[in-house]
Amino acid sequence: MVIIENLNKFYEIDGQKQYILNGINLSVQKGECVILKGVSGSGKTTLLSIIAGLDKPSSGKVIIDGEAVSKLPDMHLSKFRAKKIGIVFQNFNLLEGVNLLDNTMVPLIADKIGLKEAKDKALNALKLANIEHKANKIPSELSGGEKQRGAIARALVANPNLILCDEPTANLDRENSLKFISALKKLHSMGKTLIIATHDPIFEELDFKHKVVEISQGKIGFAVDA
């Protein structure tokens, strides 16, 4: 499903190469749930952005379903992302002033889809994420947990196989984090591939994870098969 080969990412600062990611190799099978651990600044977000094609690696490649993501031109990459990858962000990233239902529709819109079909799909996704009762609320009227479940709905509305989460519970209390995790579990049981960057210990208790990968100083420290 996801294969990462010799991935490097560096920034040049004063002519000095500053490696954020240094020779990452990782492969994730379809339906697996992988936890990316690491201290703040270790490069988790950077790795996820490169997997999602939101950022370009300095060298190396990411292959998803046989496609070298980092090599795709924008038009294809965007389509690929819309269809195959759902992203859940640390700070929710819902569009302000737009209600949850419409926010959930956004990934479908670029795909020239009819309005009714888009609304139906969005409502379904909201049901899966246990948040359909807030479909008509705008983000400022929602709690952090509700926003994050809305973000899950948006991430899965286009029925992607790969879902990336970047510190999804960082802004949630324990109760909401557990609700979020139960939504994740549903996705897992649907056969979705999950990659979750987090340093929230709550994920230690996760009963369906396959791998815990620790990043430190730009390298993968050790991988534990759960």
Binding site: L54, D74, N93, P107, A110, R154, A158
Partner: peptide, 11 residues
């Protein structure tokens, strides 16, 4: 956000 959820530059 739009780009991250799959909108192209053209969109």
């Amino acid at each position: 956000i739009l780009r991250a959820v799959g909108w192209s530059i053209k969109d």
